[in-house]
Design a protein around this nucleic acid. Structure first.
Lengths: 200, 200
DNA sequence: TCTCCTGAATTTGCATGCAATTCTAGAATT
DNA sequence: AATTCTAGAATTGCATGCAAATTCAGGAGA
């Protein structure tokens, strides 16, 4: 019997992965606020699994920095205080600088055009003062830039930190100056990418 | 009853942390070779704990990139192929650049002197052609530099990547040119730190 | 009223059990 | 001889049980 095109893939993902992703989303989206306690009994009921995979998810999210483990006292959503946010943004800046450099060298024209397209879509939202939409495309551009650097380790590292600051970044970009500065910065990056100017 | 100076702190660390650290050391030190299968029964016996904390350690090391989880088929020590090594070193380079910049600004004179001392100790080993000793101090200097940048996020990120490449770096530094180049680079960093020249 | 105790109820950390999957040989078939 | 098939063993994923730690409620004493 040949299932030619695998009619039902039945790729069952491990429960602990599912749990990790679900929890990460809840935290990054802010539905689990910083400092909130992660009650095992409650979450097992909500996610429909047992404590073992849930607790494994806690450990993973803790090493990602999204969760803080208090021995014998459970887990809480880690705080993203201003100091840590600033530190994270500094590191991300360094990573983006490297990414830009590598992307200039390694990205295909199609990829650069893709970023350019996203950039203009973002500008549209910016013009409309639509913060949420602007933010979404802003995120996408940064991520794509890092992705197209061709350095997978860089991408993963950046991606992880990005998830970590995403909760707070929304606010960091709220002030009008930062907002406009970010747009100008994007213009510059785009120009440099187009010209393949490694040093920007 | 007042135990004044806490005679025996009895700070029992969680078993899963202990397991994570022990395993990480085994991997970083190369006692568990890349590609080696991590048998749960065997390791629980060796570490004297049950499968639950061990499996939690697996998940943590997997997110750190030291271990690869094969669903239903166990965990293996992740391969550090040349491509990934190169990518990691590129990222670490970017992080060190940021660290150097920040350390110039933020490190105390005492901290800079501490690094300088380590540097000379390292030179001693270099002069004796003692690769292991040289390597040890080389590592220490890089780590201290990043630590004294004052950016905790940067330090943690770097530290994690460092553990990840440590297995392979020994070899990367083996060739005589790289070896000498690394020493010269250190000299430069030291000089820049001493002069507090942010741009190096 | 506030602080400090005390024991019950919760909650966590870890061990263990069970079902499902994967691996391992050896037999059967070509 | 090589390949396929097939128990049986080993191993993994997850649920659950139990002891230790923590939290909480209520009351005694200041």
């Amino acid at each position: 019997m040949d299932d030619s095109q695998e009619p039902t893939p039945i790729i069952r993902r491990p429960l602990h992965e599912e749990a990790t992703d679900r929890l990460r989303d809840l935290i990054v989206q802010g539905r689990l606020a910083a400092g909130a306690r992660l009650n095992e009994r409650l979450l097992t009921a909500q996610l429909g699994l047992s404590r073992t995979p849930l607790r494994e998810a806690f450990k993973v999210l803790a090493t990602e920095g999204l969760v803080e483990l208090l021995p014998n006292r459970g887990a809480i959503v880690s705080q993203m205080d201003p100091i840590r946010l600033g530190e994270s943004l500094a590191v991300m800046g360094a990573l983006e600088a490297l990414a830009g450099e590598l992307a200039c060298r390694n990205a295909t024209d199609a990829q650069i055009n893709e970023i350019r397209a996203l950039h203009y879509e973002m500008l549209a939202y910016h013009a409309r003062n639509d913060l949420a939409g602007y933010f979404k495309f802003n995120q996408a551009i940064h991520l794509k830039l890092v992705k197209y650097s061709g350095n997978a380790v860089l991408y993963n590292t950046y991606r992880q930190m990005n998830g970590n600051v995403r909760r707070a970044r929304y606010m960091a970009n709220l002030s009008k100056e930062r907002w406009d500065a970010a747009v100008r910065e994007h213009d510059e990056i785009l120009a440099a990418l187009g010209a393949r100017d490694v040093k920007r």
